[in-house]
Design a protein around this nucleic acid. Structure first.
Lengths: 331, 331
DNA sequence: TGTCAAACTGTAAACGTTTACGGAATTGAT
DNA sequence: ATCAATTCCGTAAACGTTTACAGTTTGACA
């Protein structure tokens, strides 16, 4: 049809083609309810479709001082539970025409701060922090920028929007189920104490053991990173000589690592040893029928997160949201 | 220190503070090598750090007619191999200060086209298509926009940058290993014929079987979607009465579904039945020691993709890249 | 000291929008 | 036909940059 499809077409081109001013075109595009006659509207729409015009978001963003996109910073790109949350967020956001910028902080405060700067300079509408790490830039950011913390709060940064579960209670429940399941020595591969989520989970387990009169010695503890490799390493150190009947892991990733080590040691799961994790990555249902864990509601995370973000950007108040979890006992 | 941290600080503020023109500030910021004296440079840098200025990317993007961000459209957000590719891309891109927009087309041409429009209107620098689906908008897009196809080519859209492996050859190798492993009936749960990748894999297996004199009947074939659910469903239909010794799956996701069904049927893997997949999701190493598969080099995908994208945006030529794969025989 | 080139710096335009403002056209009532 | 009240529409400014261009300073050299 049109052979001039060389340059990108702007609002000016449409205006010229329709024989009206750019203001009118803008009004039509933005459906500014009144203030534009039927005739002009028709003319403009004609021109728009003839030229195949679509508004330049950059121009818009500059004018509006905000681009309709949001950022997600993940602390660990390998963790497939986090991935699942990211995916859910993506769906929810793109349903509403909001694009999602993705960053992986790798639990590194420096990197996280760099990304925060990046993000702000892009005039993004808001930030989701999926397991934030404490950092100076973050402390500044939350003051002036819509920010939502997911799954992991930062105690030293209070009064901020947060969505999570009651990790302490969940850990207690899981531990209770674990202890009910027969007697035997217990290993604990908890996550980093610097992570509030991990600490709460650890405390839940320890308190429960205490309550039941179970003695946990220092030797049965291992502070793992939230990764499969670290779980494997921890299992290598703890398992072997000692005869553990169950191992509690700070999250599922750690549990995967433990599982691998058990396989190598010829330990049957759950025959010889039971494994308990945390998060319930959706893949478990298919690949890890041996894993007992706590199902963290990642779909609800995403739903509530975008909803809360909408409120925040409209100037709403910050809010703490504690969602329900489920115990998943598979073996 | 400064109490005026209410408004966002622009280049003008810096200029005023330093007592120079905005042009000079811009030159300093962009390290325009010469053309700015030591003294002004110092003044400006001083002002920048005092005001904590960071350039507004939107303004930049408008001026430059391109924002330093790239988009990734994934066909299926659930597929953890695709996720792994996305993660790798993210790392590589954010290393160079390029942000990544993420979209999930869900194998839906309409949605894909909507995203393509979105993306172009954001003046993104280029697009990675991780398993594209055929669509009108895509055909138009590749003509005027740096686009790289990953893992799945679209035969009707030739002469475009592509990075993948030789699926046919890989399938032949895998099938050879499968057949060498003893005699027995064979099930094939291949991916959608509409996907070129899936078709090639299927052809590779069938040709190999033919060459060895193996008869594959129509009854042993099942066209699955590239999902665990579909693999499960296919396994439900095929396995059971018939006594298969091995099953070839179009990708790992399908294999996971098959595995679950085998478990339900009480079939030992690999004792009773061997499972072959394709892609080698990194989690396999930890969770699926029973899975034989083809390792698609997702890290190399990402590396080559960003490199090729750089070339493209500098006006380089499109290029087809066929990378080496590995056979992974675990059981 | 005067001249000239080179180095530096500022002005202003441009990128594509949205929107306040005021002028023009239409409408409806008389 | 006149006037007031609406409704519509265009002009221009603003958002934050980069950069061509022209103007100014500097420094070397005669």
């Amino acid at each position: 049809m049109d052979n001039n499809s060389k340059k990108t077409v702007s609002i000016k081109d449409v205006a010229k083609r329709a024989g009206v001013s750019i203001a009118s075109v803008s009004r039509v595009v933005n459906d500014n309810p009144k203030h534009v006659s039927k005739k002009t509207r028709a003319l403009v729409q004609q021109a728009i479709s003839e030229l195949n015009y679509s508004p330049n978001r950059i121009g818009r963003a500059l004018r509006a001082q905000t681009s309709d996109s949001l950022a997600l910073i993940i602390s660990n790109i390998q963790n497939s539970f986090y991935a699942a949350v990211a995916w859910e967020l993506e769906s929810k956001l793109n349903e509403t025409g909001t694009a999602m910028l993705l960053f992986n902080s790798n639990e590194d405060p420096q990197l996280q701060d760099r990304f925060l700067e990046e993000i702000k300079s892009r005039r993004v509408g808001g930030i989701f922090m999926l397991c934030a790490v404490e950092s100076e830039g973050l402390r500044e950011t939350v003051k002036s920028f819509p920010t939502i913390f997911l799954n992991r709060p930062i105690p030293s940064i209070p009064d901020v929007s947060y969505i999570g579960i009651d990790d302490y209670a969940a850990a207690r429940e899981l531990a209770t189920s674990m202890l009910a399941n027969g007697q035997g020595r217990l290993a604990i591969l908890h996550g980093p104490r610097s992570s509030e989520t991990s600490s709460r989970r650890l405390k839940g387990v320890l308190d429960t053991c205490n309550d039941r009169g179970y003695q946990i010695s220092e030797d049965d503890l291992f502070e793992a990173e939230l990764s499969m490799e670290s779980g494997y390493q921890g299992a290598s150190e703890l398992l072997g000589e000692r005869n553990y009947k169950a191992v509690f892991c700070g999250n599922d990733q750690i549990a995967y690592g433990v599982f691998r080590r058990c396989r190598e040691l010829g330990l049957a799961v759950p025959g010889d040893i039971r494994i308990y994790g945390f998060d319930d990555n959706p893949l478990n249902e298919w690949l890890a029928p041996w894993l007992n864990t706590v199902r963290v509601p990642h779909v609800a995370y995403a739903e509530n997160a975008v909803q809360q973000m909408k409120k925040l950007t409209r100037g709403g108040d910050t809010r703490q949201l504690i969602l329900p979890y489920d115990l998943v006992i598979r073996a």
